[in-house]
């Protein structure tokens, strides 16, 4: 069987802020339909790694490949133009900790904005698809509401629908439940579970251990900017090899 091309390949990514290296030479392969959970203590570089994947942060070194195609730089090492980079980003949906819904748009407008202006989908088609996505995240009744009137959990589900509206090949989640009240976490995790079950490739940076344990195919444990350990949830939670991982697992399962 020929070797499968990873949907997402991170190849030796490093990123520093003010001389401090936050991500050090990290490499990672993610295959189609996989859900990867990136765990690690605060400041371990997990969010920065995720943001380097779609070039919201420009990596200092290393490359990202999406379905075998280089992200951010062209074949000749030149930086991609704003337009080229934007076009690559359409294939990577991103969900943020702080939702970042556009407050001047209704829920439905948030979802159809990019399909209409980036993909050139007709407004009518975008609305039909947008309504379908809102139904999927359980918010079809809120289509004409403005973001301020939604709960955190509802906002995050709209944000997920907004990302899905571009039909991305990969979904990146940056601590999607960290800003939510505990009772609102469940609805967002449910949507993420459904998404995983539908075969979406997902990279999830989160403190949500239950999700990592139940939904992740693979867990990546990061500390101080490097990947310390990688394995199935079983391996990481039952028999962590590295001392830092053991400490982390002990800490969070207390």
């Amino acid at each position: 069987m020929p070797e499968e091309v990873p949907v997402l390949q991170v190849d030796g990514i490093s990123k520093s802020f003010d001389g401090v290296e936050v991500v050090s030479n990290v490499s990672l392969k993610i295959y189609s339909g996989e859900t990867i959970s990136i765990l690690g203590p605060s400041g371990s570089g997990k969010s920065t790694l995720l943001r380097c994947i779609n070039w919201l942060e420009k990596p200092d070194r290393g490359d990202v490949y999406l379905a075998g195609k280089r992200v951010g730089r062209k074949e000749d090492d030149q930086l991609m133009s704003d337009h080229e980079l934007a076009s690559v980003r359409t294939q990577m949906g991103m969900v943020f900790q702080s939702f970042n819904l556009w407050p001047h748009f209704t829920v439905l407008q948030n979802v159809i904005e990019a399909p209409v202006h980036v993909l050139g989908v007709s407004k009518d088609d975008a609305v039909v698809r947008g309504e379908h996505l809102l139904e999927k995240v359980g918010l079809e009744a809120k289509r004409d509401a403005y973001p301020y009137s939604l709960s955190g959990g509802q906002k995050q589900r709209v944000a997920i629908a907004r990302a899905l509206a571009m039909s991305p090949t990969v979904m990146l989640f940056d601590e999607p439940t960290s800003a939510l009240d505990p009772e609102l976490v469940g609805s967002v995790l449910q949507v993420m579970h459904d998404l995983r079950d539908s075969g979406m490739t997902m990279v999830v940076v989160s403190h949500e251990m239950r999700f990592a344990r139940e939904a992740a195919d693979r867990i990546v444990f990061m500390s101080d900017g490097i990947i310390l350990e990688e394995g199935t949830p079983e391996e990481i939670f039952k028999a962590p090899k590295h001392r830092r991982t053991q400490e982390f697992v002990a800490e969070i399962s207390r």
Binding site: N54, L56, D82, H83, A86, S87, R89, T90, M92, G93, M94, F96, N100, L101, W102, E113, A114, H117, V118, L119, A159, R162, A163, A165, M166
Partner: peptide, 10 residues
Amino acid sequence: EAARSTGLGF
């Protein structure tokens, strides 16, 4: 960031 991540240009 939300806008750029959905593929909107600058």
